[in-house]
Design a protein around this nucleic acid. Structure first.
Length: 129
RNA sequence: UCAGGGGGCCUGAGGCAGCCGCGUGCCACUCAUGCGAAAGCGUAAGGGCGCGAGGAAAGUCCGGGCUCCACGAAACAAGGGUGGCGGGUAACGCCCGCCGGUUGCCCGCAAGGGCGGCAAGGGAAAGUGCCACAGAGAGCAAACCGCCGAUGGCCCUUCGCUCGCGAAGGGGACAGGCAAGGGUGAAAGGGUGCGGUAAGAGCGCACCGGGGGGCCGGCAACGGCAACCGCAUGGCAAACCCCACCCGGAGCAAGGCCGAAUAGGGGCCGCGCGCCUCCCAGCAAUGAGAGGCAGGGGUGUUUCGCCCCGAGCGGCCCGGGUUGGCUGCUAGAGCCGCGGAGCAAUCCGCCGACCAGAUGAAUGGCUGCCACCGUGCGGCAGGUCCCCUCGGGGAUACCGUGCACGGAUACAGAACCCGGCUUAUGACGGCCCCCUGAUGAA
RNA sequence: GACCCCGUAGCUCAGCCGGAUAGAGCACCAGAUUCCUAAUCUGGGGGCCGCGCGUUCGAAUCGCGCCGGGGUCA
């Protein structure tokens, strides 16, 4: 059974899971204690106006619909975060990238820094000492 | 009539097919499935059928519907808004028409007229306030340069003389007169011309402008006419303000129902706690129980009937908890077509169709073909031009056509629903108006 | 969905109501002081006042329409 994430708390919890970034999206995966395969999509206002955001979410849903039943991680939450190139990027290319990202997530490997990184524009680094 | 340019309005951004997929409404014939011996009764996961974003869905700038709250009606006050007149409308700050203003072009000697564009256009003789700098003077007008010096002094010359003065001429510019010209300014107390004067001035006259009253026309804004008034009082109200008119407040996160969770709390207010019989306790007041009547609620088309309650119920506020589901939720001041009224906005009548209801939020993904633009190649169905033995041959810049490649495909996503405004974008089309040129007709 | 506030120098803000000079602090530049720097003192530069249209003689200020940013309400 595939269901949709609707709670803000679930999205926040996914931030502590495995993170795999590709050029069109960022994939977060996290075990959810037997809730089945669930997915959610986050597209921020920075990406564009409502038409662009809705279009990106539709394409992501189409990608997940094709990939999750066969390649999805059982009893995990999958969260896709849209990035700037995700609207124009070729659909088949993104399908391959999603398959590879799911493969890495299945092996339990994420991006090198693992969890949350301090953002580049953060002023804390220069102020430290 | 054609071509080019400018402007406005309408339409509204791809189309078709195939495979997979999404939201929603309906459907039990077939398939699937539950009960049943069967007839049959269910179940919407699959399946079938239908529908599925916009002209701005946007900004949230106005006006309504709808819901709740408040309120005796209404008026006044406060606050806010609108502002030529008439019409349209459910209503509006919107739309249409007209009026006055202003501006461009054309006609005309001029006065004036025609066509088009633009604009938030009540009141400045109700009051208050402001008008910097410059300038003499900025709101009781004033007099710097300047003009004059007629009138009254003063000075000079000549003449007369009763030696006091008088007359004529001249000069300076003291008093005084003036506001035409210069200069300052955004603005200097009507404009042009002629007369007039010492110089001037509405001082007088003509025309233009202005004013209050009258007459005529118009529903009105307003316009026209003749006479009168020499003209006395600039601008700003998108400064305060005055006048006229309009507005109760909040908003679908309104409102209603259910569930979960927490508390099983506190305060205030309103309505009610009835009657009879039997039995028990008690000396009694009274209390507990059973039945009936009255009462309340539900079901229900009404009576009847059935069920429940029968001593508490309801409302508001505080405190605490929850951020789930259903409803409101889409058929409408709506849309298509035809006819009629009206200059128009718009209205009336008839006919037809049913046209989104999502909620981490439904329209997507892939493939092919056709459409738009450009480039290249092939004379290549056809046009066009040239030659010609009239069958054809050749050339193709251009109109096309076949193939290949490349490009473009806007602004933008309903969230209770309508009417507007504003802003963004406007491909291909369609209609209308204006200007210019050519041609033809009268 | 409903509503509120703010855009002025590189940064933080005055000035706006009540109209006519665009200002303050920090930062920057130059000079002085010091062996050098910091601090201090003196002087200086830097603004389409978010954008457009309008009212007015005159707009940062008044009116309207946009753009951008921030915030509140179950």
């Amino acid at each position: 059974m595939i269901s949709v994430l609707t709670k803000r708390a679930d999205f926040l919890a996914a931030n502590s899971g495995t993170r795999n970034a590709r050029s069109g999206f960022v994939l977060l995966t996290r075990p959810n204690d037997g809730q089945g395969i669930r997915f959610g999509i986050t597209v921020t206002k920075k990406i564009g106006n409502a038409v662009v955001r809705n279009r990106m979410k539709r394409r992501f849903r189409e990608l997940l619909r094709a990939a999750l039943p066969t390649q999805g991680l059982p009893d995990h939450d999958h969260v896709l975060i849209g990035r700037a190139g995700g609207v124009e990027r070729d659909f088949h290319l993104m399908a391959e990238e999603l398959a590879k990202a799911l493969e890495r997530a299945r092996e339990g490997r994420g991006d090198p820094s693992g969890g949350r990184r301090p953002r580049k524009g953060n002023r804390g680094g220069s102020k430290g000492r």
